[in-house]
């Protein structure tokens, strides 16, 4: 092992480009400078995305995020700010009665009816899209009498989807929390992998690198699964999407969700490719205790991607 190390470092020495840097300090090798700069550009890129998210969320009109007051609905276009929607948060002891009351209304907006009713039965809550205020008031009264808990949603009071509120927010926080944990673990194994090679233990480094790759892969897999669920498998109530599926065009919330997690996912994928290249390289005999700059750089990138995810998870899922 020790012998190998020496030859490798000599080789590296010989290969050095004649454009020798004036700065001989190994802490600022061109590679590291460039990697930090690259990360700075990435930080700015995600600042653009996350900053936009914050601005849109804070500054959008209250009716901005979802399809409850969809401008595509002719009544809403006519009623403008006067429309009121109803949010049945709990069907109460007598769901059949509530359903019977709600059905004719939902039938009016035909394509929403079945899935909202299903949702009402399964989960005990539902959204009734924008109505004339007096009609909505009346209905709310009747529903309350039959034991349901009803919230009136004015265009002006309505806010961004809340976590765990499944009538408006389809995201599964539990699944993603696990996924987040996996990604954090992969960062840990990345650190371990680096420390193994610094100790000259290439085999250990390979093991940890493999673990990192696997966990990164799992993370990505789960994300793909989540996308599939959201976009194709499930039919959500009107509060989530007009069309029933949670697709990028469903609402501003959906747009932000897909753009941000999508770009993060792309970064994870890029990182995975780099990790796999490193792994293959190391299997072919690259990297020693003194020569593992690429590992360090990719590790830096991987931690960055991890950090961004923690931010995204907090901002998009949790708050």
């Amino acid at each position: 092992m020790a012998h190998e190390t020496v030859t490798d470092s000599q080789h590296e020495h010989q290969e050095r480009d004649p454009a020798t840097p004036m700065v001989k300090n190994p802490i600022i090798t061109p590679g590291k400078v460039a990697m930090w700069l690259f990360l700075a550009t990435e930080v700015m890129f995600f600042t653009g995305l996350i900053g936009s998210y914050v601005v849109m969320r804070a500054g959008s009109p209250p009716n901005g995020f979802s399809s409850i007051f969809s401008p595509a609905q002719p009544e809403i276009a006519e009623l403008g700010d006067a429309a009121v929607g109803l949010h049945i948060t709990d069907a109460g002891p007598n769901p059949e009665k509530v359903i019977a009351l709600v059905r004719p209304l939902l039938d009016k907006v035909a394509n929403y009816a079945p899935r909202d009713l299903v949702h009402l039965v399964n989960e005990g809550h539902a959204i009734i899209p924008g109505q004339r205020a007096n009609v909505a008031d009346e209905l709310a009264g009747v529903l309350r009498k039959s034991g349901a808990t009803v919230e009136e949603l004015h265009q002006q009071t309505f806010a961004w989807p809340k976590p765990y509120d499944h009538t408006t927010n389809p995201l599964s926080i539990d699944l993603t929390a696990i996924n987040t944990f996996i990604l954090i673990c992969s960062s840990v194994t990345m650190v371990l992998s680096l420390s193994r090679i610094q100790a000259g233990d290439r085999l250990g480094m390979q093991k940890y690198l493999l673990a990192t790759v696997v966990m990164g892969g799992v993370f990505l897999g789960v994300q793909v699964f989540e996308y599939r669920e959201l976009m194709m498998m499930h039919v959500y109530p009107i509060g989530v999407s007009n069309s029933g599926h949670f697709v990028p065009g469903a609402s501003l919330f959906a747009s932000c969700f897909f753009a941000m997690t999508g770009f993060h996912g792309a970064h994870v994928a890029g990182g995975l490719v780099a990790l796999i290249v490193l792994l293959i390289g190391s299997l072919m005999g690259k990297f020693t205790a003194d020569d593992h700059a690429p590992l360090e750089l990719v590790g830096l990138y991987w931690h960055f991607v991890d950090l961004v995810w923690i931010l995204l998870f907090t901002v998009v899922y949790l708050i």
Binding site: S52, V55, M56, G59, S60, P61, N63, G64, F65, S66, S67, F69, S70, P71, A72, A77, N242, V247, P248, G249, A250, S251, L252, A254, S255, C256, F258, A259
Partner: peptide, 24 residues
Amino acid sequence: IGTNFFIPVGASVANEPGPVGGGQ
């Protein structure tokens, strides 16, 4: 892909129904 980042609520052109909107 039909996201709504820069499309405000209720805006549309050419007499088409607009997208959901909500952006700025």
